[in-house]
Amino acid sequence: MIASVRAAWFADRRRPAVWTVTATWTILALAFGIGIPYLVHLGLAGDPEQADAAESLLAAVLPGQLVTTGIGLFPLFGGAIVVILGALVVGNEYRWGTLNLIFTQRPRRGQVLAGHAVVLCGLTLLIAVLTFGALALVTGLLAMVEGRAPGWPPAADLAGAVAAAWLICTAHASVGWFLAIAFRSTATAIAVGLVWTLVLENAISGLALVLSPLQLLQKVLLAPSSGALAGALGARSQFDGGTPGVMESSSALLPVIVLLGYTLLMFGLGSWLAARRDVS
């Protein structure tokens, strides 16, 4: 098992696509989480009638709201990006035909796939840490520029937000990972994964506002659960002027259970499928 993890890490860390996705997400997080609100703040700052809105926008990009600003980015935007990462990690094995190489070495197929899954979990942790690290750096700089006290959040809150971001990313990545195995293709997995998380689940969430039977279904969907977890950590929902994808929630328990369930189910199903099918 350790040999499989080492080998998977050896292969995955050298894939340019992995780092391209990671860097793209980090830049997007900074742009959507900090850059755009700060630019809007600058635009409103000179207008006395918009002073409250400008102050609110500035507060959102300072370290004091690092947890809520950061975690609010993950349910919709981060999740979608990480679906791509999950699909890339295993889908390219089918594209390049390298499963032939790997499966004829020594470990069982399950061990090979578990190795990739562990590496993927490591990459999602890295993304969560990197995102909050970059946000912390930039918000700290902005506090200096604006002459405000940083007011850093408690370390426990920050750790909780990183853990929640990791869980959201891992659950989404596991979906991309499973789809790549199911379709034996990277491109199809990415397309279906994005349609699933961005279109289908959001459509159901929208319909759930008017069709109450769908509310139960909504609670076990990936994106709404991610949004509910972010909401439970204090991120403001879109209806409350927050980030798209975030949902009001008073408890993190159910979203955590659902996201863990997705992670285990997708990794388990993918491994089972890859282990029992012929490699052609």
């Binding site: 050298r14 340019p16 390049w96 035909g97």
Partner: peptide, 27 residues
């Protein structure tokens, strides 16, 4: 040891790294 159909390797890795990867899987 098997070579079946066309060889399939990671295109971005060198020949040596591809073999090292296979060696790691093989223990």
């Amino acid at each position: 040891g098997a070579l079946i159909e066309s060889p399939a390797f990671y295109p971005h890795l060198s020949g040596r790294d591809n073999l090292r990867l296979a060696a790691r899987y093989a223990g």
